[in-house]
């Protein structure tokens, strides 16, 4: 177990170890939903919320259920994905029941989140890096904010991209990839600030 403080992990997860720009997770929805700022903002908020909550639930499930039962080594994949799917479904039902306005704003993004690999990825990193509870919470929140930051920046860039002249073979996703590469390079400028492995 490392003893980096939870706050350092939170900052690192946003800037130096951004889950999208340095770990490449959550690319699918990043590519599809970054056309408009409003969509990106909604999805970013939903991802941050779900990621924070599922990291906490998965931490509890792993350390208080799977480890005592000695099945943590081969069952945690399936338990984590089940927890994420169930949690998303539950949140969708609760929001629909109590806040129809929020449901219309956020609801359409929720099913997309189950298959967002950043959520499962954050839970797996938490296990591999042997985070404590506080560190896991920091990592979950930080990763969510980091992912939202990346998709918001990309949505802004893509609106400008509409006015530019893209070479024919690069049209579509190829140019987005190249731009993301430049963005990742820019984020590497934060690298000396804090680091987590």
């Amino acid at each position: 177990m490392n003893d980096t403080s939870a706050f350092v992990i939170l900052i690192a997860a946003i800037f130096t170890n951004n889950i999208l720009l340095s770990n490449f997770l959550g690319m699918c929805s990043f590519l599809v939903c970054s056309r408009q700022l409003a969509t990106a903002l909604g999805l970013g908020a939903a991802v941050t919320f779900v990621m924070t909550c599922t990291t906490i639930i998965n931490y509890a499930a792993y350390h208080h259920v799977l480890v005592p039962l000695k099945v943590h080594d081969h069952l945690y994949f399936i338990v984590f994905i089940a927890v994420i799917a169930a949690f998303v479904q539950l949140v969708e039902m609760i929001i629909e029941r109590f806040s129809p306005a929020l449901y219309h704003a956020l609801g359409i993004f929720l099913p997309l989140i189950t298959v967002n690999c950043a959520i499962l990825g954050a839970a797996l990193f938490m296990i591999i890096r042997k985070y404590s509870f506080a560190q896991s919470v920091g990592y979950g929140i930080g990763s969510g904010i980091g992912w939202s930051l990346a998709i918001l920046l990309m949505a802004g860039l893509r609106q400008k991209l509409g006015y530019s002249n893209v070479p024919k073979p690069f049209e579509g996703v190829a140019i987005i990839m190249a731009i993301t590469g430049v963005m990742a390079a820019a984020f590497m400028g934060f690298a000396g600030m804090v680091s987590i492995q």
């Binding site: 490449f24 690069f170 049209e171 996703v173 190829a174 990839m177 590469g181 430049v182 990742a184 590497m188």
Partner: peptide, 18 residues
Amino acid sequence: LAPGAFVVLGCALAVYAV
């Protein structure tokens, strides 16, 4: 490092399109 991955994949997609 990460930026290389994005740029190489972007170029690979462009080559495939051609």
